[in-house]
Computed example of a mutant assay.
Amino acid sequence: MPPNIKVYRVHRLLAALYGLLGLAISGAIAFGSGKDSVLAALPVLLVFGLICAMHGFTARAARKGTSGGRTASRVIAILMLLGFPIGTLIGAYLLFNSRDWPKPGEPLSREATLDF
């Protein structure tokens, strides 16, 4: 499997996890006790939504194998290295797989074109 597809899958998984986590935390805050709890949930939803969108856009660019996807993935990976221990492992995996991308005109294998 080409490395850009591995990076794509990790970013797609992280986007889903951050989206679900943001919804869960926002829901817990919004349905908690207090009448202003709905307004308190909006910043949490906004932050997790932005992180989810960032991983989603990076996943799409990584699947296409663009240089922008590689750069964004490396920047995210470097930031994730600070999140010891799980973020460090994910960041190292992303850095390792974002070092070699297929050339833009290079044909991809059949596995690379499947969208799981």
Rank of each mutant, 00 (worst) to 15 (best):
A16M: 13
E106V: 02
Y8W: 10
A28E: 13
P107G: 09
K103Y: 10
L14V: 10
F96D: 05
E111M: 08
L17H: 06
G32N: 07
G49E: 02
P43N: 04
M54Y: 15
A53Y: 04
L14W: 05
I76N: 10
T71L: 12
R110S: 12
L94I: 14
S73A: 08
S33D: 13
L21P: 02
I78N: 13
K64I: 02
A112C: 13
V75Y: 07
F31C: 08
H11I: 10
G65W: 02
I76Y: 04
L45S: 11
A24L: 15
R9K: 13
P104Y: 01
M54W: 07
T58D: 01
R74S: 07
P85T: 11
F57S: 03
N97Q: 05
S33Q: 12
L108Y: 11
E111R: 15
L45D: 01
A24R: 10
R70G: 04
N97P: 02
H11E: 02
I86A: 14
L89N: 12
G32C: 02
M1F: 02
D115V: 15
A92S: 07
T113F: 14
L14D: 14
I76P: 03
L23S: 04
R9G: 03
P43I: 06
I76M: 10
L42E: 07
P2G: 11
F57V: 01
F96E: 08
I90M: 14
M80V: 11
S33I: 11
S33R: 11
G105S: 15
G27R: 04
Y8M: 05
A16W: 11
S33C: 03
G105Y: 06
I76C: 03
A41D: 08
S26I: 09
G65N: 00
G83A: 14
P2K: 13
S73N: 06
V38L: 10
S33G: 10
A61G: 00
G69F: 03
T71P: 04
L94Q: 05
G32S: 15
F31I: 14
R9H: 09
R70H: 03
A62F: 00
L114W: 13
V44H: 05
I29Y: 00
T88E: 07
F96N: 12
K35P: 13
M1E: 03
D115A: 14
I78D: 05
P102T: 04
L17V: 15
L39N: 13
R99P: 06
F84L: 14
V75Q: 00
T66V: 05
A112E: 05
A62N: 00
V44F: 08
P104D: 04
A112N: 08
L42Y: 01
L89G: 09
P102R: 12
Y8G: 00
L82P: 10
V47I: 06
F48D: 06
N4D: 01
G19K: 07
R110G: 11
D36H: 09
A92M: 09
L42S: 02
R70E: 00
G27Q: 01
S37D: 04
L13Q: 13
L39F: 14
L79S: 13
L79V: 13
L108A: 13
A15F: 08
L114H: 12
A61T: 00
A62R: 02
G22C: 03
I86C: 07
C52N: 10
G69P: 00
S73W: 00
L46V: 11
Y8S: 01
L46Q: 01
F57K: 02
A77T: 09
